[in-house]
C-alpha cells in the first residue's frame, strides 16, 4: 500500500516532484459491492495548484473526492496528505486541513447563512479566529454578508453554492475539494462561480481539487487536469495537453474502452 518515490515519480507528470505533493492518492480502488467505482487510480495535487478531475457520468470523479473524505468504500490504495497516510475518520479529516464542498451544495437550509458558515469552523476552539474567518469569508462573498441573517432556504441555487464554498473555506483548509460546483446553475452564475474558484486559488493560495463537468471553463483556470473513464485514469497533464489531444472527445463519445484506459 505504501508508495515508493519511484512509483510516485513514474505516474506523475507534473513539474513539481511528486514526492512533495500535498495530497497524493496512490492506487486507490473503490468497490460498491460488485460495481467498481475506482480501479487503482493515482493522482497528486501539489501545494497551490488547482487540479481538475473530469470525465463522463459514472467515470468515478466524485468517488475520488469521497475516497479522500472516507465516504466511499476504499478497498485498496492509500491517500497521503503531506506525505503521511490519511487514515483518520471522516470527522477528523477537516482538522487535518482538507475541506469538502459536496455535490448539490447540501447547505443546512433551516439554518441562517451565518449559522451555516459558523458550522464550518466550530472545531476551531479560538473564538477570535472564528470571527476572523467569518469576516474574511463574508468579504470574499459580499452577497452572503448582505443576507447573513436569512435562512439558507431563501437563497437561490447560485447563492447556496457560494455559501457551500464559503462554509468550506471557514474550515481554513490547506486543500479544498469541490464536487461539481456548477451543477444545475444558470450560465451567468456558472461564470461567477468559476471566477470565485479562481480567486480562491490565486488570491488565497488555497490548493483546490475540483471535480467538474464544465470542461472548457475549468480548463481555463486549472493548473493540471486528470481525466477518468470507467473508474480508471485515462489521461493526466496540463490543460494544454488535454486540449491538444482528442482524449476528451474520445472519452465522452465512448471511443476509449477499458483496454485503452
Amino acid at each position: 500500500m505504501v508508495a515508493t518515490d519511484q512509483d510516485i515519480a513514474n505516474r506523475d507528470g507534473s513539474d513539481a516532484p511528486a514526492s512533495e505533493a500535498l495530497l497524493d492518492l496512490v492506487d486507490i480502488s473503490v468497490h460498491y459491492g460488485a460495481v467498481i467505482g475506482l480501479d487503482k487510480v493515482s493522482l497528486a495535487v501539489n501545494q497551490g495548484e488547482l487540479v481538475a478531475v473530469m470525465g463522463p457520468n459514472g467515470a468515478g470523479k466524485s468517488t475520488v473526492l469521497k475516497a479522500i473524505m472516507g465516504l466511499a468504500p476504499v478497498v485498496g490504495g492509500t491517500v497521503y496528505l503531506r506525505g503521511e497516510p490519511l487514515d483518520v475518520a471522516t470527522h477528523e479529516i477537516v482538522k487535518q486541513g482538507i475541506s469538502f464542498v459536496p455535490q448539490g451544495r447540501r447547505v443546512f437550509t433551516h439554518l441562517t447563512i451565518e449559522e451555516n458558515l459558523r458550522l464550518g469552523c466550530l472545531h476551531v476552539g479560538d473564538r477570535d479566529e472564528q470571527e476572523r474567518r467569518l469576516e474574511s469569508t463574508l468579504d470574499l462573498f459580499p452577497i452572503l454578508r448582505d443576507k447573513r441573517r436569512d435562512y439558507a432556504s431563501a437563497m437561490s441555487g447560485g447563492q447556496q453554492q457560494m455559501l457551500a464554498i464559503g462554509r468550506g473555506l471557514m474550515a481554513g483548509p490547506d486543500v479544498l475539494l469541490l464536487d461539481e460546483p456548477t451543477l444545475g446553475l444558470a450560465p451567468i452564475i456558472v461564470t461567477e462561480v468559476f471566477e470565485k474558484i479562481s480567486e480562491i486559488s490565486q488570491v488565497l493560495r488555497t490548493t483546490i481539487l475540483v471535480v467538474e463537468h464544465n470542461i472548457q471553463s475549468i480548463l481555463d483556470i486549472a493548473s493540471r487536469a486528470y481525466i477518468l473513464n470507467n473508474g480508471r485514469l485515462a489521461h493526466d497533464g496540463s490543460p494544454e495537453s488535454v486540449r491538444e489531444t482528442d482524449i476528451l472527445t474520445d472519452v465522452f463519445l465512448g471511443k476509449v474502452g477499458d483496454e485503452e484506459a
Binding site: M69, L71, A89, T90, H91, E92, I93, V94, K95, S99, F100, P102, R106, F108, T109, H110, L111, E115, R118, L119, G120, L122, H123, R167, A171
Partner: peptide, 24 residues
C-alpha cells in the same frame, strides 16, 4: 448554543456534519 446548531445540522444532513468535523 453551537451544540444545538450541530444537532440541527445532523437533522438536515448528518454526512455533511461529519465532513465538517463533528462526531455525530
Amino acid at each position: 448554543s453551537s451544540f444545538g446548531r450541530v444537532l440541527k445540522a445532523i437533522r438536515e444532513d448528518e454526512q455533511v456534519a461529519q465532513v465538517f468535523g463533528y462526531q455525530t
